[in-house]
Design a protein around this nucleic acid. Structure first.
Lengths: 314, 314
DNA sequence: TTAATCATGCCAGTAGTTGTCATGTTTTTT
DNA sequence: AAAAAACATGACAACTACTGGCATGATTAA
């Protein structure tokens, strides 16, 4: 077997084992101890952070975490990785910040000049904009860890009514619009609630739990099921069509007529009414609500509240 | 020089040159032609997609795009790259889809079993949720290309008033809330406008342009300057504080008092009024607007419109 | 003190690499 | 048809690198 291949095998072996003696490698790969010492010198020259402890009970120790075999990327693949990293620049807190830094550095360093320019250009022509929030999410990594390790999580939470204590089992973590959310089973309320990770003030403790809950994907899809179906029927002007087409939950429901106007006439979840009412409020004349009466009531009630708060005095 | 190092040098040389003869390599690196043939066999065994054309004017041709020297990633760095790719899964259209696929594949293949499980788990516990996956943006790649190559772009656009033709110079492309936007200098209106890439119906043509415009970063930062400063003064209940803290542009302006209530009293851009009015509409009693009068007028006018649309008949 | 380690040097035997020469094949040019 | 330019492959001797064994030292723990 060629030296290069053998070196690689040893690299993988030792970076998994972390601590070992020359004798062990000699036995494992059937090579002389003298050669093991030479190989380790080579690996060290190649940049593997390894150090030796002298004397009885000594041996070698690999510092870095496990290494992968060398990978040959094409330039375009490298650019795509930078592109993906770019999309993360706009989050304040991320679970893998240091690793992203070092991976970026390794990749950028091995690009040729021309490709470096391409990457630099990419960064000045494309962006993933988040309303760049000042909101800190220091516990993100801890929460994600608890979720992945299937642990229960007890924490202090900043809710409407002040600081409360929650006993939960996290389903997962997701980012939306620059904020991090955690759906979790609440043992007190016996159902899955949605928590904002930045509002978790401190983690009290986490503990193992063997029970199996839904996973994040299942939770997402179950959330699309209608809990309280209700018919939404709205007539839309041309502009109304345009704006509804940009609304998260409505876009697929809009039916466009030949003259450019349109309508919505389908079943939605009653819980969404509060969510979509601001849109119809903004649309005003551009959206004529036929059904449900509840939605009209919400709009009218809020309009009355506003008028009573700001009485005509001019 | 060791064989491995020489092979790498040749790998980089040929993957940049694409087409070459054995004689050229022999001259460039001062090795015999016989050895060049041997080396090329080695590279081919290593997976470099290279083929030979026989006969006069023949030679070798490298198929794939340029290769980077082999990179040693740690397992954690590999995981961070998967994490970054994960964040892109939630866009329907992306400029580097195929490269992301192949890079993913290479990385995943060289992970050890344990790490594979970790990556799989990651994908079921973390998500980047994006509400507008259904909207197609087929021209994204073309638009980005025109931006990077500093070209002018003429296209058909679906605007409020129907289909129009735009003559622009793109500044760049950015994603926000699941949609792709393109700020571009409009030659007709002689200023920078914001276009939605999914509303670009077809590209008529693009042409070189030597002129220099602002780049995307400059455009972003210039957009934070107040064009028409106006004072916003609002008194907030505890719930009002909570909700304003979650609003993109307001969160940093909120001042919290000891009892948990708070207020906003600072200068904002007049253009933002239309943007924030739905929030105050929703807050109702939880936000008492002191200034500006314009905001109150917007709320009152819209409330009146709503009430006149849905007259009391119950 | 002894045993277990790493560290390093030397040397001869082995294994791998290289250059040269020879022979073929394919394709284009003359 | 012949010549030229290229790849393809084999044989072999010269050269180079690698390996294992042995020796010697240094360091540490039992």
């Amino acid at each position: 077997m060629s030296k290069a291949k053998r070196l690689l095998d040893i690299l993988l072996f030792v970076s998994a084992k972390k601590k070992f003696t020359a004798q062990e490698i000699s036995d494992e790969f059937n090579i002389s101890i003298r050669t093991v010492h030479r190989y380790i010198l080579d690996l060290s020259d190649m940049g593997l952070p390894i150090y030796a402890e002298q004397g009885r009970n000594g041996g070698y120790t690999v510092l870095s975490s496990r290494l992968l075999p060398p990978i040959l990327f094409t330039e375009d693949e490298a650019v795509s990785i930078f592109f993906a990293f770019q999309s993360l620049h706009y989050y304040r807190d991320l679970p893998f910040n240091t690793e992203i830094q070092s991976a970026s550095h390794k990749l950028y360093g091995s690009l040729q000049e021309e490709a470096k320019r391409k990457v630099d250009q990419l960064q000045s022509y494309i962006a993933f904009w988040n309303p760049k929030r000042a909101i800190e999410t220091p516990l993100l990594k801890d929460v994600l860890e608890a979720a992945i390790e299937n642990k229960n999580l007890h924490f202090h939470y900043e809710s409407k009514s002040g600081t409360t204590t929650k006993h939960t089992h996290p389903i997962g973590v997701y980012a939306h619009d620059g904020l991090w959310y955690m759906p979790a089973f609440d043992f007190t309320k016996q159902k899955i609630l949605l928590f904002r990770v930045d509002r978790i003030l401190s983690i009290i403790e986490s503990e193992e739990n063997k029970e199996v809950f839904v996973n994040l994907k299942e939770w997402f899809s179950s959330n699309f099921e209608n809990k309280q179906p209700i018919r939404l029927h709205v007539l839309l002007s041309k502009e109304g069509v345009r704006q509804c087409k940009s609304a998260p939950n409505l876009e697929e429901l809009v039916v466009i007529k030949e003259d450019g106007t349109g309508y919505i006439n389908s079943i939605i979840d009653k819980g969404e009414l509060n969510f979509i009412s601001p849109l119809f409020y903004r649309l005003g004349m551009h959206a004529q609500i036929v059904e449900p009466k509840e939605l009209v009531d919400i709009l009218r009630q809020q309009a009355k509240d506003i008028l009573s708060m700001y009485p005509e005095n001019d």
